[in-house]
């Protein structure tokens, strides 16, 4: 059987990991390559790099980072952030990434998913969905531009549409849970796993090992992503996997 995947996420700005990380053992806690190697050794199943560079220079630097990461680790990794053309995707994949994650550009022009999937194959096209609960309509609404702009899409409708267009995987972030450390948004994830048949990565809300157990046991997600709890060593990937094993969740 497939194992459930644990994925640390690294925010990279102008070639440096930001949002702070706490790795006293590393020479340079802001070095994406060193962190990637550390997480690979810790047993991470995959990595996600989110490029939050605002400048063109920063984006070019990201390609160097991708190349160095590809040379240093032996697990798959995804790169997201500001990708809006097939040319961008080609550059990132050629630099050695395994998948790209599309977000705002796909919502602005949904055909982009189709073009990307047809050209590179669905297996490397991840669509990232940032969703927030709307109590008036009792649905989750999809947001773009790093959560700053609301769209007309419900998470359910957009997930179906993205998969229909060729997304091979969905990375679903709950904006309500993000940073709260109170557990993943099980209700949202249940809803989405019930309406599409591609792998789903749960994101937003991880605070401790038991939250990973809960999300895997209660929603049919395939992977769970977290950032700060790993970066700040509140827990380690090894520790999370130990708890998952104890609770009967299949991990590597």
């Amino acid at each position: 059987m497939l194992t459930k995947r644990i994925i640390p996420c690294l925010d990279v700005k102008e070639g440096r990991v930001v949002k702070g990380t706490q790795f006293l053992s590393l020479r340079d806690a802001g070095d994406p390559v060193e962190l990637a190697r550390y997480y690979d050794e810790q047993g991470a199943d995959e990595l996600v790099f989110l490029d939050i560079s605002a400048s063109h220079e920063g984006r070019k630097t990201m390609l160097d980072v991708v190349e160095q990461v590809a040379a240093s680790i032996s697990i798959p990794f995804t790169v997201g952030g500001g990708i809006n053309t097939n040319e961008n995707i080609r550059n990132i994949l050629q630099a050695g990434a395994d998948k790209v994650s599309l977000n705002t550009a796909a919502l602005i022009r949904p055909e982009f998913i189709e073009e990307a999937a047809r050209f590179f194959g669905s297996q490397c096209i991840v669509v990232a969905i940032d969703a927030k609960y709307d109590s008036i309509t009792d649905t989750w609404k999809v947001y773009t531009h790093g959560g700053r702009k609301e769209t007309d899409w419900t998470a359910e409708a957009w997930a179906k549409e993205a998969v229909q267009l060729g997304a091979g995987e969905l990375l679903v972030t709950s904006m309500d849970k993000d940073g709260e450390k109170s557990g993943f948004d099980v209700a949202l994830l249940q809803k989405l796993t019930n309406c599409v048949n591609v792998p789903i990565i749960a994101s937003g809300g991880a605070g401790e090992a038991i939250h990973f157990v809960d999300v895997f046991q209660e929603a049919a997600v395939d992977a769970a992503l977290a950032a700060s709890i790993f970066h700040y060593k509140e827990t380690t990937i090894r520790a999370v996997k130990r708890v998952l094993k104890e609770k009967g969740v299949h991990v590597r």
Partner: peptide, 9 residues
């Protein structure tokens, strides 16, 4: 789910 995506033994 298809693709078969992830770590398998």
């Amino acid at each position: 789910k298809i693709p078969h995506m992830g770590w398998n033994r």
